[in-house]
C-alpha cells in the first residue's frame, strides 16, 4: 500500500514539476523505457539474455561451490575453526574491487562477470549450508548407522533432504547476491547486459532507458527471489516431505 502510494506520489511529483525531470522521470515513463528494451529483439539479445545467462551460471557455481566447501569444512573441526572467523567477515569484502583484476587476467568477457557473481553468491550459500548441517537432528546419524547408509547415498538420502530449508534459503540468497555481482560488474565495465544498459543510458542522458533498465534489474532479481521463495514454501509445506522407508 505504502509502495503504491509512493509510486503515485512520484508520478504526480514528476508531472507537476515538483521533481526535477533531469534527475527522475515519472514511473509511467520508466515502464515505457523498460518496454522499449523488452519489446525489441535486439534488447533481449544484447541486454537481458547476457545478464540472465551470467546470473544463472554464477548462481549454479555459487550453489555448487558453497555446498561442497561447507560439506568439506564440516568434516574437520580444526579446518572449520581456522576458517570460521573469516567466513563471518567474508560479506564485508568488496568483491567488486577484484573485477578489474579478473579483466586484466581473464579479459573482458562473461568469465570475469560470472567469477564476480560467484564470489558474491558463494558466501550466503556456504553460511546457510553450514547452519543447515549444524541444525541436522542427531537421530539422522543413528538412522544412517542402523540402516548402514554411507557415502554418497547418505548425502543424497539423508543429509541434503534433512537440510532442505537451509539449502533453499541459501539458493534464494545466493541467486540474489550473484545477480548483484553480475549487474555491478556490468556497470563498472562490460560491452553488454543490463548493467551496461544502465551505464550507457546514463552517459547519454537517456533517462527513460536508464530507469527502464533499472526497473528490469529490479524485476529480474525480484522475480527470482519470489520464485525461489514460492518453491521453498511449497517444498517445505507440511506433508510434502515425508520420510520414506
Amino acid at each position: 500500500m505504502l509502495l503504491v502510494a509512493a509510486v503515485a506520489a512520484l508520478e504526480v511529483g514528476c508531472r507537476v514539476g515538483l521533481i526535477d525531470p533531469q534527475i527522475v522521470v515519472p514511473p509511467t515513463q520508466m515502464v515505457r523505457g523498460a518496454w522499449e528494451i523488452v519489446g525489441r529483439g535486439e534488447g533481449w539479445r544484447t541486454v537481458i539474455l547476457p545478464s540472465a545467462t551470467a546470473i544463472l551460471v554464477a548462481t549454479c557455481f555459487s550453489v555448487l561451490i558453497g555446498t561442497c566447501c561447507a560439506l568439506a569444512l564440516s568434516r574437520s573441526r580444526m579446518i572449520r575453526s581456522a576458517c570460521e572467523p573469516y567466513i563471518v567477515v567474508l560479506p564485508a569484502i568488496p568483491v567488486f574491487a577484484l573485477y578489474p583484476v579478473f579483466i586484466a587476467v581473464l579479459g573482458q568477457g562473461v568469465v570475469s562477470l560470472v567469477l564476480t557473481g560467484v564470489l558474491l553468491g558463494v558466501v550466503p550459500m556456504l553460511t546457510q549450508v553450514l547452519a543447515g548441517l549444524d541444525s541436522l537432528p542427531a537421530y539422522l546419524d543413528k538412522l544412517a548407522r542402523v540402516y548402514e547408509v554411507r557415502g554418497l547415498s547418505r548425502l543424497t538420502r539423508l543429509t541434503l533432504p534433512g537440510m532442505a530449508p537451509a539449502l533453499l534459503t541459501g539458493l534464494r540468497l545466493s541467486s540474489a547476491y550473484s545477480a548483484i555481482g553480475v549487474i555491478a560488474a556490468e556497470l563498472i565495465l562490460s560491452p553488454r547486459g543490463l548493467g551496461h544498459a544502465i551505464h550507457s543510458a546514463y552517459e547519454s542522458f537517456d533517462l527513460t532507458r536508464m530507469y527502464g533498465a533499472i526497473l528490469l534489474v529490479l524485476a529480474l532479481i525480484g522475480s527470482m527471489y519470489v520464485g525461489i521463495a514460492m518453491v521453498q514454501r511449497r517444498v517445505l509445506a507440511p506433508g510434502h516431505m515425508e520420510v520414506r522407508a
Binding site: 556497470l187 533499472i214 529490479l218 525480484g222
Partner: peptide
C-alpha cells in the same frame, strides 16, 4: 533486499 548499486546513477 534490492541491489542498491543500480541506483548509483541517480
Amino acid at each position: 533486499a534490492t541491489p542498491k548499486i543500480v541506483f548509483f546513477p541517480v
